[in-house]
Design a protein around this nucleic acid. Structure first.
Lengths: 158, 158
DNA sequence: CTATGGCTTCGAGCGCGCTCGAACGCAAAC
DNA sequence: GTTTGCGTTCGAGCGCGCTCGAAGCCATAG
């Protein structure tokens, strides 16, 4: 499988000077434990979002969550898996609108796989562009820091 | 000077498979031409923002722009240089609030250089974290694309 | 028996960064 | 002399993604 290869590439591109945490890898491949069921507080904690946000995602139609006898939300493995995906996509900048469309495709069945793939490919390119953009800005910032740290150029300081 | 070194590093980290455009390098080091004076439309065009946004930045106190006899804005070299900096920082995610603080420091004189440097260092770290975050998300997305493209895992598809 | 605490729903509100529209001024082109 | 076009000011509005508060339900602790 290409899993290891992809992971290795990801790790490499993160640089050697700041090794990736174990949690990051786990989050990348998904949570190792398949939780039987979580409360909203536990899910929020696991996913590093607020309970408010989880309810908001549910209202937005991104995930269905069942209830216990008290009417409290019960996050099963499926819900958690989907939320891991959703929060990851949100973190990488995919708009709610796109996520709603994507999830609608998922719910529509296997026929939509090609379109889903298209969305993922486009998102991949968007993220790549953003990384390049940030890398450029980073270099510019480091350049400015260098001018501040050393001798100041004629009018380079601002 | 470390300019070449920084640029080289930036270029390297962008990867070999998609060489950096000339414009990107020019934007990184600042526009090569020192424009004598620009209209708002020309400045907007150069900076790739709307005229509305330029007026908004001025209102926000980020840049002072003089006027001609007609009351029209005249962007001189200084204003353009500052706006290049501002738009770059905005693009890399620095909030307006921080930018306002930074510019206030600039306007307050050389005594504030250490604090400005602090802000830049913090911003650098923020951008680095964001790049790492995006790189991880990118790897996850590529992984998902791979599972879609090849054989689908048991319940990996979503 | 009454807190306390965690959950529920609902709708409103907020912070951010623009973005836009209205009403107007001036000048060069036709 | 009017139209076209580019600019001005001002304040309001918008899209996004949450974020919060109020009012209520239920269970366990003291």
């Amino acid at each position: 499988m290409a899993t290891d290869e992809l992971l290795t590439r990801a790790l490499e591109s993160l640089g050697d000077d700041d090794p990736v945490s174990v949690e990051a890898i786990l989050r990348l491949t998904g949570p190792a434990d398949v939780p039987e069921s979580l409360t909203i507080a536990q899910a929020a904690d696991l996913l590093d979002v607020s309970a408010h946000t989880l309810r908001y995602y549910e209202r937005a139609g991104l995930v269905a969550v069942s209830r216990d006898t008290l009417g409290h939300r019960v996050y099963d493995a499926g819900a958690v898996r989907r939320l891991v995906f959703l929060t990851r996509m949100r973190l990488s900048g995919m708009p709610m609108r796109d996520l709603q469309h994507y999830i609608a495709l998922v719910d529509a069945g296997e026929d939509t796989v090609p379109e889903r793939l298209d969305m993922l490919l486009e998102h991949r390119d968007t993220v790549r562009r953003r990384i390049r953009e940030l890398t450029l800005s980073l270099a510019a910032t480091e350049f400015k820091i260098a001018t501040y740290g050393g001798e100041a150029g004629p009018d380079a300081i601002e």
